[in-house]
Design a protein around this nucleic acid. Structure first.
Length: 571
RNA sequence: CGGGGCGUAGCGCAGCCUGGUAGCGCAUCUGCUUUGGGAGCAGAGGGUCGCUGGUUCAAAUCCAGUCGCCCCGACCA
């Protein structure tokens, strides 16, 4: 491609609404253009990078035997009502009506459509296994699109689905996907890691995320400094130093009320009574059940934060924090003075960190009072022990005993063992060898194509611009002709342009009549792996000048060595 | 959904407080000169100041509403 003819609008200045490096650079390099919040046009330079990522994904998906198909984005809402996800997705699903008034939606993902195909065409265990994938535009009305294309409302995703007769089959298909994903991200030269994850809205029995560490990532992950343990903070476990309880002055006594006027938060009470926060018992009340009308009491140590993902898994269904009025009517007390002792009867779930606690402090269920000397299980009953706390930086790895750190990361892939959630809801069944009907056992697997590209830039750039990993680079070589009005330069540059292309290199040829500075700056901004400069100076030295973008060093080499040098650099 | 900020030329911004001819830099177009890190000179084009309404002799500027965009949080395959 000739730069003089290309639709490649580079920008000298960073648009004011680009906050993170990948967004700023993608905009400045003429890769994308925002049309609305979370909606982007992919311009030619950016689209080429996307196509590189797509080609890699496609090859590796085909390599594990998956078959590509293409599903509709425009869906009748009915299909989504069968599984209840029309409701679960809520406002995140774009909805519309067709001219006849039929309720339609724009697909945020495609499990339902896959299930619909499966129930129509898959009858027997002999038809299984199947792996189907597509590279498709997804629509989600995100409450807050942000970070450029990292969190968009319209984005391209590779999504695949496996259909199996049993759990063993699912495990195999899941492992195949994990393998393919590792190959894909390796080939894209991303420094990724895998974490155990929550399956959230998707349901199912297990899931892993593929993450790239980045300060601009929206996910938080716990990583072990020594071993391979890594988990999304939503599910991460950790060990903590045990809580030191001073002897209870009266081991068989009852808790004692202390006045704590206007001290509501852990911090206030801890400061006021001069007692370590971990010895306070934090009491929260959530409403759960089908009507969200059943209260449940959650107890954790005062210095811990409730982990809502873990709580969701334990409660097994939707929940919400109780309203202050609900608490007032059942406990007769303000939030802030709640406690498990002499509380109204309700299900009590406590974090194991409280187990065996002695002489602890908690709310008195009386405004402006707390109680001290509380012994766990002697003074109140616990129905269920469950890990409900959020792991923190510096805590102990459950695998190896080393120290955990917490980092931000960008999710580039996610694989799920769905099980039969969708197939049973939609009646996608197969007959087994004995002629009995079973729901198909499904898996679902996603990769964010745009995130691959954005992550590559996010983790490989400098002050001048992008530094492409070669496999994702929109072109292999930036050929720069300086002083193109000089006939000899023009002639040699044209010849080189044709020659390199003939040898299979993808070349962006800067043939513009602009000053050298403009060309060098654009070349660094666009970040192609190699820059080849042809100029009076280089010709005088008997060749062309070559610069590897990542390293920055220039050297002049004979024209005849160019091909070998470029191939050598390719690695 | 809560909090904050911003909408003025393609991009980056000033002007608004204190109402009175819409500006600057970059980019664009023409001509000449220029070619190793975002060139020089001369000339030119480009704006319903997000939108609607109000106040006023007069509104980019003041008031109200509305739409859009960004950020923090909540939320989130």
């Amino acid at each position: 491609m000739r730069f003089s003819k290309a639709f490649l609008p580079t920008l000298k200045e960073t648009p004011s609404d680009a906050v993170i490096p990948s967004h700023a650079l993608m905009t400045r390099a003429g890769m994308v253009r925002q049309l609305a919040a979370g909606v982007y046009s992919e311009l030619p330079f950016g689209w080429r990078a996307m196509q590189k990522a797509i080609a890699i994904v496609r090859q590796e998906m085909n390599a594990i035997g998956a078959q590509e198909l293409f599903l509709p984005v425009l869906n009748p809402l009915e299909v989504w009502e069968e599984t209840g996800r029309a409701r679960d997705f809520g406002d995140e699903m774009f909805r519309l009506k067709d001219r006849k008034g039929r309720a339609m939606c724009l697909a945020p993902t495609h499990e339902e459509i896959i299930c619909d195909l499966a129930r129509s065409f898959v009858r027997s265990y002999r038809d299984l296994p199947q792996m189907w994938y597509q590279i498709q535009t997804k629509m989600r009305d995100e409450p807050r699109p942000r970070s450029g294309i990292l969190r968009a409302r319209q984005f391209i995703m590779k999504d695949s689905y496996s259909l199996d007769a049993d759990q063993d089959g699912l495990n195999k298909r899941y492992d195949l996907h994990a393998l393919a994903y590792r190959r894909i991200f390796d080939r894209c030269e991303l420094k990724y890691f895998e974490v155990g994850a929550s399956s959230g809205l998707m349901g199912g029995t297990g899931s892993q995320e593929f993450m790239v560490e980045s300060p601009h990532g929206e996910d938080r992950v716990a990583l072990c400094n020594a071993c391979t343990y890594a988990a999304n903070l939503e599910v991460a476990e950790s060990r903590t130093a045990s809580i030191h309880d001073p002897e209870n002055p009266d081991p068989s006594g009852q808790p004692e009320e202390v006045s704590t006027p206007d001290k509501r938060t852990i911090e206030e009470v801890s400061g006021f009574l001069n007692i370590a926060p971990e010895r306070l018992i934090k009491t929260l009340v959530f409403m759960t059940g089908p009507e969200q009308s059943a209260p449940v009491m959650i107890l954790v140590a005062g210095d811990d934060e409730i982990n809502e993902s873990k709580l969701l898994a334990v409660l097994g269904g939707a929940f919400r924090p109780a309203h202050p009025e609900e608490i007032k009517s059942s406990f007769g007390v303000e939030v802030g003075f709640l406690g498990p002792v002499n509380a109204p009867k309700m299900r009590v779930i406590a974090d194991p960190r409280l187990q065996g606690g002695r002489n602890r402090i908690t709310g008195a269920n009386k405004n402006h009072y707390h109680i001290t000397g509380v012994d766990v299980e002697r003074h109140f009953h616990v129905d269920q022990w469950a890990d409900l706390r959020t792991a923190k930086e510096g805590e102990i790895c459950i695998q190896c005993g080393s120290v955990l750190r917490v980092a931000n990361a960008i999710e580039i892939g996610h694989i799920f063992k769905l099980g039969t959630k969708y197939s049973s809801a939609m009646g996608a069944n197969v007959l087994d060898a004995e002629g009995r009907e079973h729901p198909i056992v499904m898996g679902s697997y996603g990769i964010g194509i745009g995130r691959i590209v954005a992550c590559a830039i996010e983790s490989s750039h400098d002050a001048s611009g992008i530094i492409w990993p070669a496999p994702l680079a929109p072109y292999d070589v930036m050929l720069i002709a300086l002083n193109v009005r000089e006939p000899e330069i023009a002639r040699q540059a044209e010849a080189l342009y044709a020659d390199l292309q003939g040898k299979g290199f993808e070349v962006l040829f800067d043939d513009r009549e602009v000053s050298p500075g403009v060309k060098f700056n654009d070349a660094d901004l666009l970040g192609l792996p190699w820059q080849v400069v042809i100029s009076p100076k280089s010709l005088a030295k008997g060749g062309v000048e070559i610069k590897q973008r990542a390293i920055g060093q220039r050297s002049v080499i004979p024209m005849t060595d160019l091909e070998n040098t470029l191939r050598g650099l390719r690695g």
